[in-house]
Amino acid sequence: MFLIVGLGNPTKQYEKTRHNIGFDVMDALADKYNISISENKHKALCGKGVIEGMKVVLAKPQTYMNLSGESVAELVNYYKLDPESELIVVFDDISLEPGNIRIRKKGSAGGHNGIKNIIAMTGTQNFMRIKVGVGEKPKGWDLADYVLGHFSTEDRAKVEEAIGHAMDATVLMMQGEVDKAMNDYNSKNK
Protein backbone atom coordinates (compact mmCIF):
# COMPACT_ATOMS: atom_id res chain seq x y z
CA MET A 1 0.00 0.00 0.00
CA PHE A 2 1.12 3.55 -0.73
CA LEU A 3 0.30 6.71 1.17
CA ILE A 4 0.18 9.65 -1.20
CA VAL A 5 -0.05 12.97 0.61
CA GLY A 6 -0.74 16.33 -0.97
CA LEU A 7 0.16 19.31 1.17
CA GLY A 8 -2.00 22.40 1.55
CA ASN A 9 -4.18 24.34 3.93
CA PRO A 10 -7.81 23.50 4.78
CA THR A 11 -10.79 25.81 4.25
CA LYS A 12 -12.19 27.45 1.14
CA GLN A 13 -10.05 30.59 1.41
CA TYR A 14 -6.93 28.61 0.44
CA GLU A 15 -8.42 26.66 -2.48
CA LYS A 16 -6.37 26.90 -5.68
CA THR A 17 -3.62 28.96 -4.01
CA ARG A 18 0.04 28.27 -4.77
CA HIS A 19 0.53 26.61 -1.37
CA ASN A 20 -2.35 24.19 -2.04
CA ILE A 21 -0.96 22.61 -5.20
CA GLY A 22 -0.54 19.32 -3.32
CA PHE A 23 -4.29 19.27 -2.61
CA ASP A 24 -4.93 19.98 -6.31
CA VAL A 25 -2.86 16.93 -7.32
CA MET A 26 -4.76 14.75 -4.80
CA ASP A 27 -8.08 15.97 -6.20
CA ALA A 28 -6.93 15.19 -9.76
CA LEU A 29 -5.80 11.67 -8.76
CA ALA A 30 -9.09 11.15 -6.92
CA ASP A 31 -11.08 12.21 -10.00
CA LYS A 32 -9.08 10.05 -12.40
CA TYR A 33 -9.20 6.90 -10.24
CA ASN A 34 -12.66 7.36 -8.67
CA ILE A 35 -11.41 7.72 -5.11
CA SER A 36 -13.47 9.74 -2.66
CA ILE A 37 -11.27 11.86 -0.39
CA SER A 38 -13.94 12.43 2.21
CA GLU A 39 -13.09 10.40 5.30
CA ASN A 40 -11.87 12.67 8.09
CA LYS A 41 -9.34 10.76 10.18
CA HIS A 42 -5.74 11.07 11.36
CA LYS A 43 -6.04 14.87 11.04
CA ALA A 44 -6.58 14.50 7.28
CA LEU A 45 -9.21 14.03 4.63
CA CYS A 46 -8.46 10.55 3.30
CA GLY A 47 -9.64 8.23 0.59
CA LYS A 48 -8.74 4.60 -0.07
CA GLY A 49 -8.63 3.19 -3.55
CA VAL A 50 -6.64 1.48 -6.26
CA ILE A 51 -4.32 3.15 -8.77
CA GLU A 52 -3.05 0.95 -11.60
CA GLY A 53 -3.60 -2.19 -9.51
CA MET A 54 -1.94 -0.86 -6.34
CA LYS A 55 -3.74 0.00 -3.10
CA VAL A 56 -3.42 3.62 -2.05
CA VAL A 57 -4.53 6.07 0.56
CA LEU A 58 -4.78 9.62 -0.74
CA ALA A 59 -4.53 12.20 2.04
CA LYS A 60 -4.93 15.95 2.42
CA PRO A 61 -3.74 16.93 5.93
CA GLN A 62 -6.12 19.33 7.66
CA THR A 63 -3.57 20.61 10.19
CA TYR A 64 -2.45 23.61 8.12
CA MET A 65 0.82 23.37 6.25
CA ASN A 66 3.31 23.87 9.08
CA LEU A 67 1.93 20.91 11.08
CA SER A 68 1.49 18.47 8.16
CA GLY A 69 3.81 15.97 9.84
CA GLU A 70 1.31 15.34 12.64
CA SER A 71 -1.14 13.91 10.13
CA VAL A 72 1.48 12.10 8.02
CA ALA A 73 3.05 10.41 11.07
CA GLU A 74 -0.39 9.25 12.29
CA LEU A 75 -1.22 7.81 8.86
CA VAL A 76 2.17 6.08 8.49
CA ASN A 77 1.81 4.53 11.96
CA TYR A 78 -1.84 3.53 11.54
CA TYR A 79 -1.23 1.74 8.22
CA LYS A 80 2.15 0.39 9.40
CA LEU A 81 3.91 1.84 6.35
CA ASP A 82 7.61 2.36 5.73
CA PRO A 83 7.88 6.06 4.89
CA GLU A 84 11.10 5.40 3.01
CA SER A 85 9.38 3.19 0.42
CA GLU A 86 5.60 3.63 0.76
CA LEU A 87 5.15 7.40 1.16
CA ILE A 88 4.97 10.00 -1.61
CA VAL A 89 4.51 13.68 -0.69
CA VAL A 90 3.40 16.30 -3.23
CA PHE A 91 3.95 19.98 -2.46
CA ASP A 92 4.66 23.45 -3.84
CA ASP A 93 8.15 24.71 -4.65
CA ILE A 94 8.95 28.40 -5.23
CA SER A 95 12.34 27.58 -6.80
CA LEU A 96 10.62 25.95 -9.80
CA GLU A 97 8.74 27.82 -12.50
CA PRO A 98 4.99 27.13 -12.85
CA GLY A 99 4.51 24.07 -15.04
CA ASN A 100 7.68 22.32 -13.87
CA ILE A 101 7.90 19.45 -11.42
CA ARG A 102 10.90 17.90 -9.69
CA ILE A 103 11.01 14.38 -8.28
CA ARG A 104 13.30 13.38 -5.45
CA LYS A 105 13.88 10.07 -3.66
CA LYS A 106 14.78 11.90 -0.44
CA GLY A 107 16.22 15.17 0.77
CA SER A 108 16.15 18.03 3.21
CA ALA A 109 13.19 20.32 3.81
CA GLY A 110 14.74 22.98 1.60
CA GLY A 111 13.02 25.68 3.66
CA HIS A 112 9.53 24.21 3.21
CA ASN A 113 7.84 24.18 6.62
CA GLY A 114 5.41 21.39 5.76
CA ILE A 115 8.27 19.09 4.74
CA LYS A 116 10.31 20.19 7.76
CA ASN A 117 7.46 19.08 10.04
CA ILE A 118 7.02 15.74 8.21
CA ILE A 119 10.75 15.02 8.64
CA ALA A 120 10.52 15.91 12.35
CA MET A 121 7.39 13.82 12.98
CA THR A 122 8.33 10.72 10.92
CA GLY A 123 11.99 10.79 11.93
CA THR A 124 13.26 10.49 8.36
CA GLN A 125 13.94 12.68 5.36
CA ASN A 126 14.22 9.59 3.14
CA PHE A 127 10.78 9.69 1.54
CA MET A 128 9.80 10.22 -2.09
CA ARG A 129 8.49 13.60 -3.07
CA ILE A 130 7.15 15.53 -6.01
CA LYS A 131 7.73 19.26 -5.99
CA VAL A 132 5.36 21.28 -8.18
CA GLY A 133 6.64 24.65 -9.31
CA VAL A 134 4.69 27.75 -8.30
CA GLY A 135 7.32 30.31 -9.27
CA GLU A 136 9.60 32.60 -7.35
CA LYS A 137 8.05 35.35 -5.25
CA PRO A 138 8.38 38.80 -6.79
CA LYS A 139 10.90 41.17 -5.23
CA GLY A 140 9.42 43.02 -2.29
CA TRP A 141 6.63 40.48 -1.68
CA ASP A 142 6.15 38.71 1.63
CA LEU A 143 6.64 34.95 1.10
CA ALA A 144 3.45 34.00 2.98
CA ASP A 145 1.39 36.47 0.95
CA TYR A 146 2.86 35.05 -2.26
CA VAL A 147 2.33 31.34 -1.58
CA LEU A 148 -1.17 32.00 -0.22
CA GLY A 149 -2.03 33.95 -3.37
CA HIS A 150 -3.61 32.67 -6.58
CA PHE A 151 -1.97 31.92 -9.92
CA SER A 152 -2.38 34.19 -12.91
CA THR A 153 -4.54 32.69 -15.67
CA GLU A 154 -1.41 32.00 -17.72
CA ASP A 155 0.41 30.31 -14.83
CA ARG A 156 -2.69 28.30 -13.85
CA ALA A 157 -2.73 26.75 -17.34
CA LYS A 158 0.93 25.73 -16.91
CA VAL A 159 0.17 24.36 -13.45
CA GLU A 160 -2.69 22.23 -14.79
CA GLU A 161 -0.16 20.57 -17.12
CA ALA A 162 2.21 20.07 -14.17
CA ILE A 163 -0.60 18.41 -12.19
CA GLY A 164 -0.94 15.87 -15.01
CA HIS A 165 2.80 15.25 -14.97
CA ALA A 166 2.75 14.85 -11.18
CA MET A 167 -0.03 12.25 -11.49
CA ASP A 168 1.91 10.29 -14.11
CA ALA A 169 5.09 10.52 -12.03
CA THR A 170 3.21 9.23 -8.97
CA VAL A 171 2.21 6.09 -10.86
CA LEU A 172 5.79 5.51 -12.03
CA MET A 173 7.09 5.97 -8.48
CA MET A 174 4.57 3.48 -7.11
CA GLN A 175 5.71 1.00 -9.76
CA GLY A 176 9.29 1.28 -8.49
CA GLU A 177 10.33 3.47 -11.42
CA VAL A 178 11.54 6.52 -9.47
CA ASP A 179 14.63 6.92 -11.67
CA LYS A 180 12.47 6.81 -14.81
CA ALA A 181 10.11 9.40 -13.29
CA MET A 182 13.11 11.61 -12.48
CA ASN A 183 14.54 11.20 -15.99
CA ASP A 184 11.18 11.81 -17.68
CA TYR A 185 10.01 14.79 -15.65
CA ASN A 186 13.03 16.49 -14.09
CA SER A 187 14.53 16.86 -17.56
CA LYS A 188 11.42 18.72 -18.80
CA ASN A 189 12.31 21.60 -16.51
CA LYS A 190 13.69 24.60 -18.33
Rank of each mutant, 00 (worst) to 15 (best):
I119Q: 14
N117I: 03
T153F: 03
L67A: 03
K131M: 11
G69M: 09
T153V: 03
D82V: 01
V171R: 02
N113M: 04
T122Q: 10
S68Q: 02
I88S: 06
N183Y: 14
H165Y: 08
Y78S: 03
G110Y: 15
A166R: 09
L143T: 04
R156M: 07
T170A: 14
N100S: 12
G135E: 15
D179W: 10
D92W: 15
V72N: 09
I163F: 08
Y146R: 02
R102Y: 15
R104S: 08
D142N: 15
G135W: 01
F151A: 06
L96W: 15
L67Y: 04
S108M: 06
G107K: 02
P83H: 12
V132L: 12
N186F: 13
N100H: 13
Y78C: 00
L81H: 10
T170D: 13
N77V: 00
F127M: 12
E84Y: 02
G133I: 01
E161Q: 09
G110I: 04
A181H: 10
R102C: 14
D168E: 14
M167V: 00
N183H: 15
G140I: 04
G149N: 07
V132Y: 10
A73C: 05
M128H: 09
V178D: 09
N77T: 03
K180G: 10
T170W: 14
V159R: 00
N113I: 03
F127L: 07
Q175Y: 08
G114F: 15
L81N: 06
H150N: 03
G123K: 09
I115N: 10
K180Q: 06
I130G: 06
N117D: 13
E74Q: 08
K180T: 14
R156I: 02
N77S: 12
P138E: 12
A73G: 03
G123D: 07
T124S: 15
A181G: 13
E177G: 15
D168Y: 01
M182K: 06
M173F: 06
G133A: 12
K139A: 15
K137G: 06
M174I: 04
R129W: 11
D82P: 12
R156W: 07
